[in-house]
């Protein structure tokens, strides 16, 4: 381990805290252990057991992101907040861009829309840059909608491939799905197109923001017709941040959580994977939830890009492959 990299992380975190503190954001610290999570079928979870001689035992989960707690704080009116914390995703493949335990920065800004959150994130990258950070990372973001990027890369219209049958046929014609009659979710087929064509077509010399993710990829961002008001930030083909214009309708949150929990439970019942408890009352906090935008940014990846490294292992002390 190169000690300059340990110092780089410490310096980056200081810069981030200065950035948000000077803008009046409140730094918060939420638990790593939760009794229930927001169901996300594509994120596998770590579970552990709370054991008490008197209270009995209870399954607990390591948070895959601090969202579940931060949203409670926002509902209580805490205003603009940020958190730097550890997150845990099980079965996360160990590779140059993944470690099952990783560091995340989340920041939520009241009354912000996509344009505002993109501008803030652009300032964040520029103002927190470490000495020696590649110039490209400090450049203005190129903003492109997913529909435009898809069309540029494949010639397909997002609107025309909304049915699972049609998108599978198109993916088959483009050579990324062998059997178009296979039963797979629309989101999986879309990701075949996205990873094979769209992602490789993105510019790598400047940060790129993809806006308007398909609404059929479920998440707690607001809907806008066939897309979600969600954006993702890429640099050098590496995904660094994800942002939602947060869903504020209690009914839609309840519906989404119910659907996602059902999907997760049915998929995992077959594999025996951990099914984290769902809090059936969680949606109630959205009765007093302000309009806001929330960004989650992978700190190990940002640090990797800022220091010009190729693997997040280089930046993580005692990475998973070392401790297994």
């Amino acid at each position: 381990m190169d000690t300059s990299l340990i110092r780089a992380r410490s310096r980056l975190y200081r810069n981030i805290r200065e950035f948000f503190d000077s803008r009046g954001y409140l730094e918060v610290e939420t638990p790593c252990l939760a009794a229930s999570l927001i169901p996300e079928p594509t994120i596998k979870n770590f579970s552990t057991l709370y054991q008490s001689e008197y209270l009995g035992s209870r399954e607990m989960y390591l948070v895959p992101s601090p969202e579940v707690f931060i949203k409670r704080l926002i509902a209580r009116g805490c205003g603009n907040v940020y958190e730097i914390c550890k997150c845990f995703r099980n079965a996360e493949q160990i590779g140059s861009l993944h470690n099952p335990e990783f560091s995340m920065l989340e920041y939520y800004t009241m009354d912000f829309d996509e344009k505002d959150s993109i501008a803030l994130t652009q300032e964040l990258l520029r103002e927190t840059a470490l000495p020696g950070c590649p110039d490209g990372l400090k450049q203005p973001f190129e903003v492109i909608s997913m529909a435009q990027a898809l069309n540029k890369a494949t010639g397909l219209e997002l609107e025309a491939i909304q049915s699972p049958k049609v998108i599978r046929q198109k993916a088959h014609e483009l050579g990324v799905l062998d059997d178009p009659s296979v039963s797979e979710g629309w989101d999986d087929t879309f990701n075949r197109l996205f990873l094979n064509f769209v992602e490789p077509s993105l510019r790598t010399d400047v940060p790129v923001v993809l806006t308007g993710y398909p609404a059929q990829i479920e998440c707690l961002a607001q809907n806008d017709g066939i897309v979600k008001r969600r954006w993702e930030l890429y640099f050098g083909a590496v995904e660094i941040a994800n942002c939602y214009l947060e869903e504020t309708s209690p009914e839609r949150v309840r519906e989404s959580m119910r659907r996602e929990f059902a999907r997760m439970a049915s998929e995992r019942a077959l594999t025996g994977e951990v099914i984290p408890d769902n809090d059936p009352e969680y949606w109630r906090i959205f009765r007093s939830f302000p309009r806001c935008s929330g960004v989650a940014l992978g700190l190990d990846r940002l640090l990797m890009l800022q220091t010009g490294r190729q693997r997040i292992d280089d930046l993580i002390l005692f990475g998973f492959s070392d401790i297994l």
């Binding site: 594509t42 079965a91 996360e92 861009l97 989101d187 990701n191 996205f194 990873l195 992602e199 990829i217």
Partner: peptide
């Protein structure tokens, strides 16, 4: 060469 990718809110893929 093999690299795992998890597109945001998507299943696990491998490049």
């Amino acid at each position: 060469d093999r690299e795992f990718v998890n597109p945001g809110k998507g299943s696990a893929f491998v490049r």
